[in-house]
């Protein structure tokens, strides 16, 4: 058990490290940097920028250092000081922006995960037990439906429908009066009123996928000999289904978090852009467009870390629910 934990956590750390390398490298790829963008802008407006000034700016930002040196400095600052660098575009500390936005992303991803589980588990279970019933066909069809509709399109449609029938599009996570207010019960309540729309939109395609996974897993389990053993004992059908196949099917269910989280975070990013939610999506988008490299790298790193941590937690859960994993060696 401890060996398993140790291996998993070492593995998660390694993954985060590789991701940090990738996210930093990706940000460095574009030709030019923030200074050249700035110079272009200044030239367009004022006309004249001296090459010396441009050079000095580069030195200040350290853009001329080799890649690894820049990466090393960046990582050192994150690890020792908790600093992600400076946003050129917003003229703010990147870490401030991250701490402002990331919890909301995290909360939204978490809520979507809960939504996906709460909806997909019972539907998948019912579909498998009542295989080829009308409800099963309906669930399958809705599953395909949910997988086929891109979440940003769904967000657009929701915008259109709410605008048309409620006179106002559902945008953002808060009503105007709470948007910049400090946290209070009222604000939390307001959040609850708004959050379910993005939660459903983000979760819908994963829900569809998970219903299908759940159904397939459970169908596999229903034919296993141990189910027959339980039936031959005289257990009632409901008790039997819950104690045996459902319990077995839950394991892959827990481990699906590994593929679900990346797609939920992706979904969260784009849906937040469309619905203009105060999460990391819109900021990341702008940072990418503006080559605001430290902000972009910081967000990608944190979002990816979020999924790695989520996957790690799902590994722990798996060990907790499945004795076969728990008792390995």
């Amino acid at each position: 058990m401890w060996k398993y934990l140790l291996r998993r956590s070492a593995y998660a750390l390694f993954t985060v490290w590789v991701i940090s390398l990738i996210s930093f490298a990706v940000i460095q790829l574009p030709p030019g940097d923030y200074v050249s963008d700035l110079v272009n802008d200044l030239r367009a407006q004022a006309g004249e920028v001296s090459p010396e000034w441009e050079q000095r700016m580069r030195e200040i930002y350290g853009f001329d250092d080799p890649f690894l040196v820049q990466y090393f400095k960046w990582m050192r600052n994150i690890l020792t000081k908790g600093q992600f660098g400076y946003s050129f575009y917003y003229k703010r500390d990147a870490v401030e922006m991250i701490t402002e936005r990331l919890p909301m992303s995290f909360a939204l991803s978490f809520l979507s995960t809960m939504f996906v589980w709460v909806v997909a588990l019972p539907i998948g279970f019912y579909s498998a037990v009542h295989k080829y019933s009308i409800a099963d066909y309906f669930a399958s069809f809705m599953g395909f439906f949910g997988m086929a509709i891109p979440n940003f399109l769904l967000a657009l449609i929701v915008l259109y429908l709410t605008y048309k029938y409620m006179g106002q599009a559902v945008i953002g996570l808060f009503s105007a009066e709470y948007a910049s207010a400090a946290w209070s019960w009222g604000k939390l309540l307001d959040l609850m009123k708004h959050v379910w729309v993005p939660m459903v939109i983000i979760g819908i395609s994963s829900t569809a996928g998970l219903i299908r996974t759940m159904r397939a897993n459970l169908l596999d389990e229903l034919n296993k000999p141990y189910v027959e053993t339980a039936r031959a004992k005289g257990l009632s059908e409901t008790r039997l289904l819950i104690k045996y196949p459902l319990r077995h099917a839950l394991n892959p269910f827990v481990s699906t978090l590994g593929w679900m989280l990346p797609s939920l975070v992706s979904g969260e990013t784009i849906v937040s852009m469309v619905l203009n939610l105060p999460t990391s999506g819109p900021i990341l988008y702008r940072a990418l467009i503006q080559q605001d490299q430290y902000v972009a790298a910081g967000f990608i790193l944190m979002l990816s870390t979020l999924t790695v941590v989520g996957t790690f937690i799902s590994d722990l859960l798996l060990a907790w629910v499945d004795p076969r994993i728990r008792l390995q060696q």
């Binding site: 141990y226 005289g234 045996y244």
Partner: peptide
């Protein structure tokens, strides 16, 4: 009431007839 009490059954596959959970 009959199953498991009056008539009980053992199966071919001892490896999978008991739940590993």
């Amino acid at each position: 009431q009959i199953r498991g009490r009056e008539i009980s059954m053992i199966f071919q596959e001892p490896m999978t007839s008991l739940s590993p959970m």
